[in-house]
């Protein structure tokens, strides 16, 4: 998706942007937001066309109106004993709990991998073991260890978030400029001072990128984590709706997840602009 926020660079530069920069063309083409909005409108139109003419059974694809009504009733009366807000709240709590764990463990681990040979030797195999594993594979084990409560759900999401946090922190450490490090050393900085005043700030943009990737991994793991013994949460809501073939709630749930994830992305980029303004300017 390349909707751009006022004043922020687009998530990915388009070919058009690159053309314009190289040719110094100052004419204003159609804003990206409008193109994206047109796409969304067209998709909605096709969707309602398909359902109102009965091309697809409502069981498989309910109409946009039905989904909207499902959203409304979710918000007011709720589904499986909880309102939409409570489902969203439960999921957000797990995501943020897991993110906190992943950052507290992952950032120091990434610093150790990036800044010390010993740290790299110790931690690299663990990260490389964990990284390619699908969360569903270790979910049963985590449940055996931690039980079916919140702890196991947060642990599974955190495990999925760890590799991107660790690896991007380590990458950030390695991206620290040799001149920046040498400058600090020439002013008499100790190893610890170099780490704190040069390495960590240098790695910060990369750590934030890793956090964004981790949030993505978190959302995909969330649904799996809420498969087992959950009574609330967006993933749980979608699962139980699917079991009863309440397709409009399934789609409503998917749309809510997409919307929340998109808001996260915007928030992350605002935080980036505020916290590491130099990473895009220099």
């Amino acid at each position: 998706m390349s909707i751009s926020v006022e004043g922020l660079p687009p998530i990915m530069p388009t070919v058009q942007d690159i053309d314009r920069q190289s040719e110094g063309d100052t004419s204003r083409p159609l804003p990206l937001v409008w193109i994206s909005l047109a796409t969304i409108t067209a998709l909605l139109f096709l969707w309602s066309l398909a359902s109102s003419y009965g091309f697809v059974s409502p069981l498989f694809l309910p109409s946009p109106v039905a989904v909207y009504q499902a959203l409304e009733s979710l918000a007011v009366t709720g589904f499986v004993d909880a309102t939409l807000a409570q489902h969203v709240g439960a999921s957000l709590l797990r995501i943020f709990g897991a993110l906190a764990v992943a950052l507290v463990v992952g950032v120091p681990a990434g610093l150790a991998i990036g800044a010390s040979r010993l740290g790299k030797g110790i931690l690299d195999p663990i990260v490389e073991f964990l990284r390619p594993l699908p969360p569903l594979a270790y979910l049963p084990l985590v449940i055996i260890w931690l039980g079916i409560g919140e702890a196991s759900k947060i642990a599974v999401i955190a495990l999925a978030m760890l590799p991107p946090v660790i690896l991007s922190t380590a990458t950030g450490v390695r991206s620290a400029s040799a001149d920046h490090v040498n400058a600090a050393r020439s002013f008499g900085a100790s190893r610890l001072q170099v780490l704190r005043h040069v390495i960590v700030p240098s790695a910060l943009p990369s750590i934030l990128t890793g956090t964004r990737i981790a949030l993505g991994a978190g959302w995909s793991t969330l649904v799996a984590a809420e498969l087992v013994a959950a009574t609330r949460g967006l993933g749980f809501m979608i699962q139980s709706a699917a079991q009863f073939l309440v397709t409009d709630v399934v789609i409503a749930g998917i749309i809510v997840i997409a919307a929340v994830a998109f808001l996260f992305e915007l928030a992350a980029r605002l935080i980036e602009r505020w916290l590491v303004p130099w990473s895009t300017r220099r």
Binding site: S177, D179, H180, N182, S186, P201
Partner: peptide, 30 residues
Amino acid sequence: PGAERAVVFQDDALYPWLTALDNVAFPLRL
């Protein structure tokens, strides 16, 4: 390396996360 032999780099090596003033204050902070 040591503070009695301060280095100035070709590619300034200023810290982009600090203001001009904080860059100058950096050795004192250390």
